[in-house]
Simulated assay, not measured.
Amino acid sequence: MPLFKKVLVTAVAASAGLGSSLSLAQEEVNIYSYRQPFLIEPFLKEFTEETGIETNIIFGDQGLTERLKREGRNSPADVILTVDIGRLQELVDAGVTQPIEDETISANIPEQYFGENNQWVGLTSRARVFFTSVERMEPGEIKTYEDLADPRFEGRICTRPGDDAYNVAMIASMIAEHGEEYTKEWLEGFKSNLARKPQGNDRAQVKAIRDGVCDVAIGNTYYYGKMMEDEEQRSWAESARIEFPNQEDRGTHVNISGMALAKHAPNEDNAYKLMRFLTEETAQSMYANVNYEYPLNPEVAPSDAVAAWGEFKADDVPLSEVAELRRRATELVNEVGFNN
């Protein structure tokens, strides 16, 4: 049985006058999460305050799908939270989820953000954008993902490793748009334009802009908000602007965070209460204002900070197609030696 982190403990009144024969059943829901603790603990705290249901959580950077398979019917997991369409599809392909059938959730989240047979549901979106130097780049100097391979930007681009989940999804969207042959050539050109070996996370790329290592970085929008509220990292964000790629054609690549119902959820009723909560106004507003993500509930607006980045056209390629192309995207990254 896994050792859960107790995110919040429900207080239970006790009295010496109560006989030992009285047993109080504890209301709880067990969560497996790929999402970082600081991103979701505020929501879980609010959920417990509203419902009295304790949340027990295991965080993992990787391996949760394999853990669910290994645990099988004995798994204590009720709800799985993750980022990236690929990880959601990985859970489905592993057979560790079950359909989410609930009128409230269906009313709160648009149909296009449900997986096949409702095996997962999206919660928020984030755009994969360019961060460009305010000192060394003019706005609009780089316009498209295709421009990442333009020789004009030789030695001027920084990015995470190519086989990172966020980049894999972006590359998969390129395959969906242009096919494998074009995408492989594009990756080779992209690699030729790198200022350094792919490394670090999205924030590290923006720091590299501040430090003069590169002029263009690729990253998810919400990191910009997180850097602006961090005293140490604010100067990184201030050195760069957000630019949304491909606004004159197909639109900017968008990925999601989402949730799935574990196949053998032992606390299914409480799992549904949590999943409903995560799609409703309170949690969706917290996603917007605390995490700088785009809510998928259309009744909830982005935060003022996010809205200030401007409206943008999103790529409408189905996320299911992006998920299907992830393996080939990873293979192309390896074929061109992108990370070397």
Rank of each mutant, 00 (worst) to 15 (best):
R160A: 12
E146C: 07
E181N: 06
E138T: 11
T144K: 10
A176N: 15
F153V: 08
I142H: 13
D164L: 03
E146T: 14
F153H: 03
E177Q: 12
N193I: 10
T183A: 00
Q199G: 14
F190M: 00
A169V: 12
A195K: 02
Y182S: 13
E188K: 15
E185G: 12
M170Q: 07
P198M: 00
S192L: 05
P151F: 07
G189F: 08
L194A: 09
E181T: 15
Y145F: 09
G189K: 07
G162M: 02
S173F: 02
G140L: 10
G179P: 06
D163W: 14
F190V: 02
A149C: 06
E185I: 02
A149P: 09
I171S: 01
F190S: 10
K191C: 05
K143N: 05
K191W: 05
L194D: 01
V134M: 12
T183Q: 11
E135D: 15
Y145K: 06
Y166V: 13
Y166R: 01
P139S: 13
C158E: 12
P161C: 11
E181P: 01
R136Q: 11
I171T: 06
R196N: 12
E180G: 12
A169T: 04
R196V: 11
A172L: 03
I157W: 00
N193R: 10
S133N: 13
W186L: 02
P198Q: 08
F190L: 00
A195S: 15
K184S: 07
Y182V: 09
A169E: 13
R152T: 14
N193D: 05
E177D: 13
V168A: 02
E138W: 02
A149R: 09
L148Q: 03
F153S: 07
K191F: 03
A176S: 15
A169W: 06
R196L: 07
R156F: 03
Y182H: 10
W186Q: 04
I171M: 04
R136A: 15
Y166P: 02
R152L: 11
T183V: 04
P151L: 02
I175D: 04
P151C: 02
L148R: 06
P151E: 05
K197M: 15
P139T: 08
W186H: 04
M137R: 13
I157S: 00
N167V: 00
E141T: 12
N167D: 02
S133V: 12
T183C: 09
C158S: 14
S192A: 15
T159G: 03
R160Y: 13
A165D: 14
V134E: 15
D163M: 12
Y145L: 04
E146L: 11
D164T: 10
I142K: 03
M174I: 12
E138S: 14
D164H: 11
E185C: 06
M137Y: 04
M137N: 06
E180I: 13
I142P: 09
P198G: 02
I175N: 07
E141W: 11
